[in-house]
Amino acid sequence: MKKITLALLVGITLLTCKKNKTTSDCGDKICTEEFASIMIKFVDNKGSGIEVKDFDVINQRTGKRIMANSSISTNTTKGVFIIVDDQNKADLSEQGDDLKIMGTAVDTQQTKSVVVKVSGGKCACHIVKISGPDQVAFN
């Protein structure tokens, strides 16, 4: 009788215990140490990089401005901008978000915009460009 009571007590205790969750919501993932970034180049009608002002990236899903953290300290080639990097992945959806990239040519004051689709998400290892141009050409 004592063995049955003890077995019932142990069984009830095990059923009422909460398990400690040791894995994240993302499961067990193995990611590389690489740091991904996506760039865009603004060019003239001959394909040469040009100076651009009023550069901006807007996530069309959220309406929020995105600024790649690596672009703050990066000295890039003329006309080349980092639009998004791995530090922005939580701001992006797993299905991909349309990012509207805008800029105005300093010499002609012409403004152009393009849309680039990029995926990320809380559980993503890296951002991934899904579609969109690599450069923006001014006339």
Rank of each mutant, 00 (worst) to 15 (best):
I82L: 08
T16F: 00
F42C: 08
V115N: 06
I72S: 11
Q109W: 08
S48T: 12
E34H: 14
Q135C: 10
D86N: 13
Q110L: 10
Q60W: 01
H126G: 08
I130R: 09
D97P: 07
I38L: 14
S113F: 08
S73F: 15
M39F: 07
T111H: 04
V128L: 14
Q87G: 15
G132P: 11
V136C: 04
V57N: 01
S71H: 06
S113P: 11
H126I: 05
L14Y: 01
T16Q: 04
G47V: 02
N69C: 10
I66S: 01
F55Q: 05
V43P: 06
N20P: 06
T108Q: 00
T62G: 09
Q109T: 13
A90N: 15
F55L: 06
V43H: 08
Q60L: 15
G132L: 06
H126D: 05
K3Y: 07
K64W: 00
A68K: 03
I30D: 13
G120L: 03
V118Q: 02
N45V: 06
G11F: 07
I130Q: 12
D28Q: 15
V43D: 03
Q109P: 09
V118S: 04
L8C: 12
D85K: 04
I83S: 10
D91R: 10
I58Q: 11
F35I: 15
D86E: 01
C26T: 02
N69M: 14
K117C: 07
V57A: 06
T13H: 00
E34W: 13
I58R: 14
S48M: 15
I127H: 09
V106E: 12
I30E: 14
V114F: 00
C123G: 04
K18N: 12
